[in-house]
């Protein structure tokens, strides 16, 4: 069971609620963000996800990527990778999808109060971290130093680019970005995200790290954080598994003795570090 904070539960965990697509933004190739318009205020906590239902095609778990302080709009960022996400991507503004949720555990914002906060995001992993970043920035005075490290495949693959630039422009946020490869028209850093973790101006004694991205990237990042002096219980990760029911019944997302849909997706690293090293899990 995750030691994350109290989660918000779906009013009816089995019933998709028809929800209208209010706005759609094409972020990067094969990735889009929706601003959905729930018929009633939709409250969630950073780190949680919804099951999005494409009528007649199927359901997929997608992290909520929007502002947790605004229950009138529900943001989801989706990468087109399979049948259901392709069907979702073919929808237009004004169309309806089914939304079931919110589900899952949350980023430990309560525990981070008074601490320095380090966010490390890789690729689309920025989407599940965005609500936590927005929540921290909305209550900026409650936290110590706020640092954001972001790694992407290339400059063209940088998610929420304008927002990252705006955060970088703040006096009360340290933000560093790096891309795995680039041409000559990119003047930022080139290399892997762990490089920035190694260099980050953070004090492990007073910090909480929240990490989200591909699982290999999270393992490498956690290892780098441990080398910097972080204990495993100061590191939080968001795992991705094949979540089907979202209520811990079907077992598709089982990871050892835990169900990622119910006990995760956000875990304290010491709870899952050993499991993440088991091949096939």
């Amino acid at each position: 069971m995750s030691t994350g904070e109290a989660t918000r539960r779906a009013p009816n965990a089995y019933m998709p609620i028809p929800t209208r697509i209010g706005r759609m933004v094409g972020d990067i190739e094969d990735v889009f963000t929706w601003a959905l318009e729930p018929s009633e205020p939709f409250e969630f906590a950073p780190g949680q996800f919804n099951m999005l239902y494409a009528h007649g095609v199927g359901e997929v778990p997608i992290s909520i990527s929007g502002d947790p302080t605004d229950p009138t709009v529900l943001h989801h960022t989706v990468r087109v990778v399979g049948k259901v996400t392709r069907a979702l991507g073919a929808l237009n503004v004004g169309d309806e999808i089914g939304v079931r949720g919110p589900f899952g555990s949350t980023w430990p914002l309560g525990q981070a109060i008074g601490q320095d906060v380090l966010f490390v995001a890789g690729g689309l992993g920025l989407a599940p971290l965005r609500p936590a970043i927005l929540a921290v920035l909305a209550r900026r005075g409650e936290f110590g130093q706020v640092s954001i490290i972001y790694g992407a495949r290339s400059p063209e693959d940088i998610l929420f680019r304008r927002e990252l630039e705006a955060w970088r422009g703040r006096f009360d946020v340290d933000l560093e970005a790096i891309v795995d490869r680039s041409g000559t028209d990119w003047y930022g850093r080139v290399g892997v995200v762990t490089r920035l973790v190694a260099e980050a101006d953070v004090d492990p004694e007073t910090s909480v790290a929240m990490v989200c991205g591909p699982e290999i990237m999270m393992r490498f990042t956690a290892r780098e954080l441990e080398q910097r002096g972080f204990e495993q219980d100061q590191i939080w990760v968001s795992l991705e598994r094949s979540m089907k029911c979202a209520v811990g019944l079907c077992g598709h997302c089982q990871l050892g003795g835990t169900f990622v849909c119910k006990d995760g997706p956000v875990y304290r690293y010491d709870e899952v570090a050993a499991k993440m090293l088991v091949r096939g899990l």
């Binding site: 890789g122 795995d180 762990t194």
Partner: peptide, 13 residues
């Protein structure tokens, strides 16, 4: 070498 190995994995694709 460690950084290049991670880069080679192309984890964000």
């Amino acid at each position: 070498l460690s950084r290049l190995r991670l880069q080679k994995l192309d984890v964000y694709r």
